[in-house]
Computed example of a mutant assay.
Amino acid sequence: MITMEDIIRDGHPSLRKVAAEVSMPPSEEDKQILSSLLEYVINSQTPEKQAQFGLRPGIGLAAPQINVLKRMIAVHLTDDTGILYSYALFNPKIISHSVEKAYLEAGEGCLSVDRVIPGYVPRHARITVKGTTLYGEEVKLRLKGIASICFQHEIDHLNGVMFYDYINHEDPLKPIAGAKAIER
């Protein structure tokens, strides 16, 4: 089981590296790692488990955040319409995206970043992601709102990109022209 001690922190060189594709079919070790990423995210949203294991709540986690440089992410969140997005994916890839932008009004956070970094992070309002599940199924997900933002954040980790790289450092809270503000 992954704990907060397993999550590497901002400044660690692995967070700036590009992760390698996972060979298909995945090894048992890769399946176990991916499964444990999802388990962490689910457990981190349960107050009892947070207290029991000292977990910081999160809605997504990528393998590079536990110092495994492989293309694996886990996401577990419910959007504003009540739809649950619970996915553990090998080799997720954004295959299309909208021109329209969106951002979280409250800004983004990250389990690898121990401080609040104020600022709006411009993201694509809608994306389509392809990946392979733990069970070897190819999935194609059309995402918008918080789910779209979360998947983009996690896929960025696979490419060595941190959320704050996108913030306008001159004026972090300047509204993003034409972008949709999303509450969380």
Rank of each mutant, 00 (worst) to 15 (best):
E28I: 07
E183Y: 11
K70L: 01
L69Y: 12
P47K: 00
M4C: 05
G107W: 10
M72S: 10
T78E: 14
T132V: 15
Q32C: 09
G82Q: 04
I149H: 11
G82S: 01
E21W: 08
D156L: 07
D114T: 10
T46V: 15
R123W: 07
D80E: 15
L55S: 02
G136P: 08
P175M: 06
P57M: 01
K93S: 12
K174R: 15
S98C: 02
I94P: 04
V99G: 07
I95K: 10
G119C: 09
I155V: 08
G107P: 10
L89E: 10
N43T: 00
I66S: 02
D10M: 14
P172E: 12
V113S: 03
H153Y: 04
E183R: 15
N159Y: 10
T81M: 09
Y87G: 08
L84Q: 12
R56Q: 09
G54V: 02
T133L: 00
D6S: 05
L69F: 05
L89W: 02
I83V: 15
Q65W: 00
I176D: 03
Q152T: 09
I42D: 07
M72N: 12
S112M: 05
G145N: 10
P172C: 13
R184V: 13
R126K: 13
S86K: 09
N67I: 02
M72I: 05
N168I: 06
L61I: 06
L111A: 07
